[in-house]
């Protein structure tokens, strides 16, 4: 008799306790993972850190190309675009370096370039990341004069941007880090727009 009369209320208590425990668990899990994600700094071998390092190197070459165009291109439109690209990408290098400082990481890594990227090994040639010009190509741009500066710059920068977008796509699929996804996203849209502008300049200037 005792068991029969008390069972329903005990069931209810157990049910309520279970429900409370479940809700608490969900709440802790939700808040906990958010806290860890927000306060959790990317690791040294993370895609976020690898991207910050490698995209800085990639950008550095674009700055070099952009400055040459800004200084010496024949077309005012190419000079303007070269300066725009150089200034933007140099500022972004500063941001990416600061991320690494904020994440308490070294700006350098003993890992090979693009090690963070799936199939990164095949994408990299020596120390050159996708789309990057070889030292010989850079020397040719440096030595060029007149409209040849414009022609080489447009050709090399379109290729450079395409490689950069490839790296952006890779990091967007590998990380949720807020700063990285934000800046990488703007790099992609910005560089896509610039590719279109450069292709249009190639036509206008009679290079294609």
């Amino acid at each position: 008799m005792t068991e029969e009369t008390t069972s329903p209320s005990r069931w209810r208590q157990v049910g309520i306790a279970g429900l409370v425990a479940l809700l608490l668990g969900v709440a802790i899990g939700f808040v906990g993972t958010h806290l860890v994600q927000r306060s959790g700094l990317p690791a040294d071998d993370s895609a976020a850190a690898g991207f910050a390092r490698d995209m800085s190197s990639h950008h550095a070459q674009a700055v070099a190309m952009g400055m040459i165009a800004a200084d010496r291109a024949a077309s005012p439109a190419v000079r303007s675009l070269g300066g725009d690209i150089a200034m933007t990408q140099q500022a972004q290098i500063g941001m990416m370096r600061q991320w690494l400082r904020d994440w308490k990481l070294n700006v350098n890594s003993p890992a090979k370039p693009m090690a963070w990227m799936p199939d990164g090994d095949s994408a990299v040639q020596g120390n050159l990341m996708p789309g990057m010009a070889t030292p010989e190509e850079m020397t040719a741009l440096e030595k060029a004069t007149g409209p040849e500066v414009d022609r080489l710059f447009l050709q090399m920068m379109i290729k450079h941007h395409l490689g950069g977008i490839h790296m952006v796509d890779a990091v967007l699929s590998e990380t949720d880090q807020g700063d990285v996804t934000w800046l990488a996203g703007t790099m992609k849209s910005g560089q896509q727009g610039e590719i279109a502008a450069m292709q249009s300049l190639q036509k206008t200037l009679g290079f294609s």
């Binding site: 550095a60 070459q61 700055v63 070099a64 400055m67 140099q90 500063g94 370096r97 020397t139 440096e142």
Partner: peptide, 9 residues
Amino acid sequence: GAVCSNGNT
């Protein structure tokens, strides 16, 4: 923030 590009070659 100082760069390595440009310069003497």
